[in-house]
Structures are given as C-alpha cells and as structure tokens.
Design a protein around this nucleic acid. Sequence first.
DNA 1: GAATAATGCGAAAACGATTACGGAGGGGGT
DNA 2: ACCCCCTCCGTAATCGTTTTCGCATTATTC
Lengths: 335, 335
Amino acid sequence: MVSMKDIATRCGVSVATVSKALNGQTDIGEATRQKIIETAREMGYTANSAARALKTNRTYNLGIVFTDLANSGFMHEYFASTLTSFRLEAERCGYDITFISSNVGGANTSYLQHALYRGVDGVAIINADFYSPLVQELVYSDLPVVTLDHAFNNRTCLLSDNMDGLENLVRFIYGKGHRKIAYIHGNPTAVTESRMTGFYRAAEALGLNIPEEYIEECEYHEPVSCYEATKRILALSERPTCILFSDDYAYIGGINAIYEAGLRVPEDISVAGYDGIHMANMLSPRLTTWQQNTTELGRISASKLIERIEHPRTTPPEHITIPGKLLEGETVKQL
Amino acid sequence: MVSMKDIATRCGVSVATVSKALNGQTDIGEATRQKIIETAREMGYTANSAARALKTNRTYNLGIVFTDLANSGFMHEYFASTLTSFRLEAERCGYDITFISSNVGGANTSYLQHALYRGVDGVAIINADFYSPLVQELVYSDLPVVTLDHAFNNRTCLLSDNMDGLENLVRFIYGKGHRKIAYIHGNPTAVTESRMTGFYRAAEALGLNIPEEYIEECEYHEPVSCYEATKRILALSERPTCILFSDDYAYIGGINAIYEAGLRVPEDISVAGYDGIHMANMLSPRLTTWQQNTTELGRISASKLIERIEHPRTTPPEHITIPGKLLEGETVKQL
DNA sequence: GAATAATGCGAAAACGATTACGGAGGGGGT
DNA sequence: ACCCCCTCCGTAATCGTTTTCGCATTATTC
C-alpha cells in the first residue's frame, strides 16, 4: 500500500505537505498541490481510514442496531426498506455503515462496547428490544443516537404516525358504512400502544361500540398466529363487518382463515392491513392499508443523526413524526 | 476514553505488559495478568480498533457489496435472508460487516478503493452487476473475495443449484402428468442461464417439445412484468397446462393474470415458482416452488471467506453449489 | 529601503496499540 | 560456585495520519 510518505519522497516534500494538499488545506501552493494530487493518482494512493480515525477520533462510520427480533430468518420489508434508504442518505453524506450487535466472536459485549470499539460517530437503533438494559445503556451514553419508533427522553427519535394512521384507517372504514370493526393487533410494544390509542380514539369520536371479543392479539409479521386470531373472530356469533390486521404480511394468514370459512373479500367481509408493503398492491383484491413512509423514515433518521454528529451544539434532540398515507385498495366494501 | 496507558500507570507496569496481558500472550505472570484484567474492567477499558488495525493491518471487518439493483426500494427476501445469515456467521467468528459501495460522499470511488480505504479483510459480493468493470477490478484484486451466484475464475464462489433446481422442478411437474410446460424466465444473468439450461435439459431428457411461445421473459421480482408475460401465454391458442414463473414474488403478478382470465389454480392451470420465500407457504393454495437454501448460502460464504482470510495458503478457491429442495405445495395438479 | 504582512512549507508530537528484542532475576544442574 | 535456562517484564520502534507552531521567503505598505 502506498502511503503519504511515498508520495512525499517522490515529490520532494514533507508528509505534512502531502496531507494538507490532499485534504484541501489552504496553506499550500497551487503548483505543489497539483503535483501532489497528480502523483497520488499515479501511484494509486488510498488513504488509510484507521490512521485517520486514530488521529482525528472520527470514523465517518455509523453504527446500526438491527436485530432480527422475530428471528424469522428474513427481514421485514418495513425495516429492510428503512435501512436501505438510511444507508443511501448516509452514503450521500460520506458515511459508511456498520452493524452493531451485542455479541461478536463469542465475547458477550454490550452494544455500547461494540460501538466504542469500532469508534462509530453515532448510532441508529432501527430494530431492537428497546426495553433491554443493553439498549438503554447505549441510548443514554455519550454517543449521538437516533431511535426508530420508540421515543426516549432527550434523544432524537423518528416515529411513524402509528396513532394517526390507525385513526384514519378506522375513519375511512367508518366512512364506508362499517360499524362493527374488529382489530387484531400485534404483540405489545410502543408501536402497538400507539396504534391501539388511535383505534380507540377513532372509535370514541365516532361513537363506535367495540366489544372485547373484537380485539385479538397476534404476532407481528406472523401469518400463522394471525390465521388463528382471525378464526377466533370469525367464530363469533356477532361477526364484525370489517377486520383490521396488525400488518400486511400477517394478513396473508388472515385471508386464509377467511377463505377457509367460505367467505369472500370484500363481498362477505371487509379487511384492512397496515404497512403498505409492496405486495399489498399486487394482491387481488388490492389490500386496503396504511402505508408508512419508510423512505423518509430512513432518510431523515440518517440526516438527523449526522446533523447531531456534526453540529451537536446547535441540534437539539427532537421527536419527529413521519406521516403515512392511505392506500385505498379494494378490500373495504361500501355498505 | 481510557487507554492502555491509563491501565499501565494504574497498575505500575508498562503499556506493553498491558497489551500482552489483555491479548493472552504467554509471557506474563498470572498475578499481573489478573490484576491488569481486573483494573481494565474497573476502568471500563475498550480497545481502540483503529489503533489496532493500523498496527496489525487487520480490521476484522468484512466488506459487503450489496447493491439493490432493481432499485425497488426494498430488499428481495432471497438476498435479505442470505445477508442475515452471512452476518450471523461472520459475527460468530468475530468479524463485523461494512457495506461497500461505489460512491460515498459524492466522491465517485470504486468498490476496490472503498474496500482498501476501510481496510476490510475480505469482501463478499452478494448482489451486484457482475459484468461491471468495477466489480471485475474488485474480484481480481489482492483482497480475498467470495461471490454469490456468479462464478469467476480462481475465486471462490457460492452457487445456488439453479440448474438442478429447475431440472427437478420440471421433472416433478412431468411426474404429475404435465407435457405442455411454459417458462417465464427472468432477465438475462448467469442465474437465468443456469435455470434455462436446467429447463431444457429436463425437457430434452423427458422428450418434451417446448414451442417457442412457451418461453417468455419478465423481470425478476417484478409482478407487473410477470403479469403481462402471463397474459401473453394465456392468450395462446394451445395453452400450456403448467406455467413456471421466474420467482415466487413475481408469481403474485402471474396469479392475478390467471384469475383475471377466469381460471382457477390448480384446477384449470398449474403453476410453480422459484425461491421458496416465506410467503409461498402462506398463500392459498400453497405455492409449489423450489426453495433455495439461503441460510446455508450466507453461512458458508461467510465461513469460506474467513477461511481464505485466515489461511490463504491452505485454502484454495472453490466453487460450491448449495442444494435446494422442492416445496411441493398445492399448485401443480395431478393430471 | 525598512518594517510589516502574507504565503508556503517542514519538524515534530501525537493518536493507541503491537511486537521484536533484550535484560534482570531466580532456579536447577554439575 | 559457575553456567545455563526459564520466567516475566520493559524499551523502543512502528503503523499512517493530522495538526500546531515556527521559520523562511516573498509580497505589500509607507
């Protein structure tokens, strides 16, 4: 590997001069700068990020906590998509991305330890168990941190508009004439809480009476558990006219239960999902759902994190809500 | 940040001793070692990977080339899943993962430049345009490299058994009594070529006559283009009894075309996919497909890459094929 | 032409670790 | 008592940068 020293000797200048020339310092003559840049190109010079990081204490590396909780062996489109746009924005700003996990090489280190070891400039927690002490430790460390879909005091955080989303969804369904609406929600998290609040808020505002049996729980992103919850609801003596599912993917299980019961969508029963994954539009009938703006979620979380890294004094922590939008689809029938 | 120097002064030993104690060198007395380890823990010491990398020329970082070609804004489950298990295995061996892209911070660098800058110990090319000169440059550099689903001379590579997969799929369908089999293949890549070969090999071995019109092209993972290709096939005067789709996800488009034509699966027409994504089992009827073993693909590519990094002399490059398996599903009818 | 200011460059320390080499001290063999 | 050999630890160089400070040299001003 060719280093600055090689360039320096070749150009007959000092290493300091090479460094300054290559980094655009102003106290270098234009002629020498050009010569240095040129020979750097010729010799195939590549900077050494480790040396730079050692000296400057900046790595231009962002840590990502992305734990596949469900362990389902593949990534939820919501997270995958958010991650993709996060990465895009980070790279646009000159940052690379490293996964931060809590045990590397058998050594059972903490997230924070790992982040410090790698010297990342900041961390985005995209997907993790927010209640775990390891996450708490990381969040309240000195590192710039942004979290996704879970708010911490005095830390910036990006939220999908879960409450509004569900409220709007219910209002839309209500507008179609439905009064008996069931909700199969996901496992309890901050996200679920928000959505439940939205659900009940709409119900109250609209004067809906929601019997207890209309509320079921399933596991997010798990069609099988959704299939079973759906069966329980379909077995009720007073069946709802519309079922809201925890998410679009789990809905695949729900629709199976519905078909098995010999019902058609939306003729016999209406349904709606949540997430707005790509597939929702491909199904037939097209699924009515609330689309979260993952592109913005990823982009903004990256840019806010970088802002906090580069201008810590002038960037206060904030809680930012990214609005989604209704995908009308065809699965909610006008009554 | 507490460094080795701090520990050294606290323990009344030299920095060298601290380093050796912490790294398990044998020329340190047991008593001093314990004392050093203990105070390191007390003081909350974390090693500095940059300094270590600078000195040792090893980062314990693996580069990943993972370009979302389709730009579909979300990750294909096949790649996402492979990536997940790659990461798992890498972390088990004490390696972290960094994305390598060809332009960071506006500077239009090459993959190789980026990899060298970050000093990764090796690179896995999971998803990229293998014909691009940037990839070629990377593959034939001095860095240890493994590629996925695209073989290069003298470089280790992991292949899903695309040829066998398609051949077995066709044989299975043939076994169910089908003789008129259409194939909507994906856009031309090395993978597509293998699958086509498998398709024709089976056809020839079984004495099938495949008219030209039975072969259509669509874009991988793109239901809309698959929808159109399917329509073209359904419009043929002599309609096939079974259609093979490029992949399970694109199939969503195909099924829509089939339903639109008023046909039922598998009563009126049989279908099969490829990939074996999670959803295939959730659909109703359950999709017949060939499941690629993404878990093994990811795991083995990581372990082979690490092997080549750690024992370059004794690890020859190899081309490894990972077998998949048939998911029978319910979409191929017994004729 | 002298004083001052601006410009261009180098010396050297520092970042935090690793490692080859050497040396002190103690124990054992003869 | 002598020599040799372990055991255990320190010295110092080194990895490739960045950055402060200072020193020449040249330009500017009166």
